[in-house]
């Protein structure tokens, strides 16, 4: 298993290399000029040219890419065009709030999603099933900025239970993570329900029941365990969706995360920051995929790594 993990990590290197080429290339294909964007509407040509020289943007593309990669191999992501700060510092300080938010959201989505899904599957076509699956449909379709504002109006403005926005203590995490988790809860719940329904029809579930095992054991040990593989896959994929989808939640809740940093940096054509942030996110995504693959083995011991 360790050997497998190491091999997977090594395989991630070409993936990340591909990411650098894609991000680097796509940014340069965008119309617009970072020097001009940084200099602003009032700048003269002379100033724009000076900024361009300072940033090394007057060099040919392959040289710029070579410099970027050379820095990367030394662990140096470069300097932000907009702020003049090291990209690693800039991205790192913003990555933590995002991971905090997506981590809590994912945990929430997993617990609630699987819980609701299982209950719905056990009692299909019950009131609970109808209500929760309708709620899931709404959760899946509600735009984040609308849902976020509604939650704010209810829990902060009307009830005064929770702070409306901004990063701070645990209470500050509640509304943004619920907002971000909503669509994932819905998806995981619906997915769990359908997978569970299928598993519950299997012969071994009937066998377990026939053996006289208690209902809880049948559901959790026999049915859920076998239904988990596709659910774990979906959860792993949701992590990526949460990371990239966090930008709206971050904007609505004034959360200083990396999604907002990337969007602001694209507007300012701050190439180094976009490159660095996307690379780190890609790394996180690769890492999560690996964790998911390793989890398969834990969930189902029949799966071997070699």
């Amino acid at each position: 298993m360790i050997q497998y993990a190491v091999r997977r990590l090594l395989l991630a290197i070409p993936t990340l290399f591909g990411v650098t080429i894609l991000v680097f290339g796509m940014l340069r294909m965008l119309p617009g000029d970072p020097a001009q964007a940084m200099a602003g509407v009032h700048a003269t040509q002379e100033y724009v040219a000076q900024v361009r020289r300072q940033l090394g943007l007057d060099q040919p593309l392959h040289i710029q890419y070579g410099r970027f990669m050379a820095g990367l191999l030394r662990g140096d992501l470069g300097i932000s065009i907009r702020t003049g700060l090291p990209v690693s510092r800039e991205v790192w300080s913003r990555l933590i709030p995002t991971l905090e938010l997506t981590g809590v959201s994912l945990a929430l989505a997993t617990l609630v999603g699987i819980g609701v899904g299982v209950v719905s599957a056990v009692k299909p076509y019950s009131i609970f099933d109808y209500v929760s699956m309708t709620a899931a449909l709404i959760g899946l379709s509600a735009p984040v900025f609308w849902l976020g504002l509604m939650l704010m109006l209810l829990f902060s403005v009307q009830l005064r239970w929770l702070p409306a926005a901004g990063r701070g203590g645990l209470a500050n995490l509640v509304l943004p993570s619920v907002t971000l988790a909503a669509s994932s809860v819905a998806l995981i719940a619906r997915f769990t329900r359908s997978t569970m329904l299928e598993v519950m029809r299997q012969d071994y579930v009937n066998t377990a029941r026939a053996k006289g095992l208690p209902q809880g054991t049948v559901i959790l040990r026999h049915a859920l365990r076998n239904a988990l593989i596709p659910i774990v896959t979906i959860i792993g994929l949701r992590f990526g969706a949460l990371l990239s989808g966090a930008v709206l939640t971050e904007t609505v809740f004034a959360w200083p995360g990396v999604g907002r940093l990337i969007v602001d940096s694209i507007s300012a054509r701050d190439y180094p920051v976009v490159q660095g942030a996307v690379l780190l996110l890609a790394l996180a995504f690769v890492g999560i995929n690996l964790v998911v693959d390793l989890l398969y083995g834990l969930v189902n011991p029949r799966i071997q790594y070699d």
Binding site: S156, R160, G166, T251, V252, F253, A254
Partner: peptide, 18 residues
């Protein structure tokens, strides 16, 4: 000086006194 990118959220924060 607090950065709140969304106009609507800034208004909510003002109303709640944050």
């Amino acid at each position: 000086f607090k950065v709140v990118p969304s106009d609507a959220t800034r208004l909510v924060l003002l109303e709640t006194g944050q």
